[in-house]
C-alpha cells in the first residue's frame, strides 16, 4: 500500500477531455494542511454532463480534491492552495471570487446524510430561500424531490422532520436539497457509504438520471460503483493523480501499474 510515487510522475491520460466539453478544469493544484501536502500538482479536466469518479486508497486526497472544487476547504484555517481551478472561463481561486457564490453553483452531498432538523419541505427550500428565490417554492420543492426520486415516498410527509426518514431517503433528500439551488455541478463524497445495498442502488440509478441536468463528480471506495455510475474515472495515490480516462478503459485496460494493482485489489 505504501508504494511511493516518483516525484516527477506525469499523470497518464487516456482519451483526454476536449477543451470545449470541459466544465471544470483543475490546473496544477497543490494543497497543504499546515506542513502536510495533501495534493501534489493535480490536473484534471471534468467534462460537462458526465459523471467523473475519483478513486484511490483511504487518505490519498480524494475528499480534499473534491472539497477544493467548491472551496469548502476555505473553512479549514490551516489550508494553503497553489494552482488554479478554471470554471466557465473564471478562475475559482482568484482573489476576486466569492467562495460562497462558488458553492451555490457547485453543490455538495456528503458521506453521511445530514438533513437539517427541519421538515422535509424546509430542507429542500433552505437553499432557494438563502438566495432569495422568487418563483413558486412549492413547485421548486416538488421538482427537486422528483428529481431526486423521493417525491413519491415523501409527498404526504412534507411537513414531517427530515430526520424521520430512512438513511437512504435522507441521502436522497440531501441530493434534492442540493438540486434545489440549481447548481451546475454536484460533488458527492462517498454518498452511499452509510447506506444499505438497496438504498445504494436507488442512489446509483439517480446519479444516472441527473447527469443530463448536472455535472457530477463522485468519490467512491467501491470499484463496482465507480464502474456502474461513472463515465470517466480518476485514480489518485498519496495526493498524486496517477491516471485518468474513460471508466471502461481504466477498468479494463489500466495503463499504470499502480492503477492496475488498485483495481485488481492488490492494495488499498
Amino acid at each position: 500500500m505504501s508504494q511511493t510515487v516518483p516525484e516527477n510522475h506525469v499523470t497518464v491520460r487516456t482519451d483526454p477531455v476536449a477543451q470545449e466539453d470541459a466544465l471544470v478544469a483543475i490546473d496544477h493544484l497543490s494543497l497543504w494542511y499546515d506542513q502536510f501536502q495533501a495534493l501534489r500538482d493535480v490536473s484534471l479536466t471534468v467534462p460537462k454532463n458526465q459523471v467523473t469518479a475519483l478513486i484511490g486508497a483511504s487518505g490519498c486526497g480524494k475528499s480534499t480534491l473534491l472539497r477544493s472544487i467548491n472551496r469548502m476547504n476555505d473553512l479549514v484555517p490551516s489550508v494553503r492552495v497553489e494552482g488554479k481551478i478554471h470554471y466557465e472561463g473564471a478562475e475559482l481561486y482568484d482573489a476576486s471570487v466569492d467562495a460562497v457564490e462558488v458553492r451555490r453553483r457547485i453543490g455538495m452531498v456528503f458521506q453521511k446524510p445530514n438533513p437539517f432538523p427541519k421538515t422535509v419541505y424546509e430542507n429542500v427550500a433552505f437553499g432557494p430561500r438563502l438566495h432569495g428565490y422568487k418563483g413558486n417554492m412549492d413547485e421548486l420543492v416538488e421538482k427537486s424531490l422528483k428529481g431526486a426520486a423521493l417525491w413519491d415516498e415523501v409527498q404526504d410527509k412534507l411537513n414531517q422532520s427530515g430526520l424521520g426518514l430512512s438513511g437512504g431517503q435522507q441521502q436522497r433528500l440531501c441530493i434534492a436539497r442540493a438540486m434545489a439551488t440549481e447548481p451546475d455541478v454536484i460533488l458527492m463524497d462517498e454518498p452511499t457509504s452509510a447506506l444499505d445495498p438497496i438504498a445504494t442502488d436507488r442512489i446509483e440509478q439517480l446519479i444516472h438520471e441527473i447527469k443530463k441536468d448536472f455535472t457530477v463528480i463522485i468519490v467512491t471506495h467501491n470499484m463496482q460503483q465507480a464502474g456502474r455510475v461513472s463515465d470517466r474515472t480518476a485514480f489518485m495515490h498519496l495526493g498524486v493523480l496517477i491516471e485518468e480516462g474513460p471508466t471502461d478503459q481504466i477498468f479494463t485496460n489500466p495503463q499504470h501499474e499502480m492503477t492496475e494493482n488498485y483495481i485488481s485489489g492488490r492494495f488499498g
Binding site: 458553492r103 456528503f110 437553499g127 438563502l130
Partner: peptide, 11 residues
C-alpha cells in the same frame, strides 16, 4: 455536519 450542509448550499 449541519454547518457543512449549509455552506455546501452556498450559505
Amino acid at each position: 455536519s449541519l454547518r457543512e450542509a449549509s455552506y455546501g448550499l452556498g450559505a
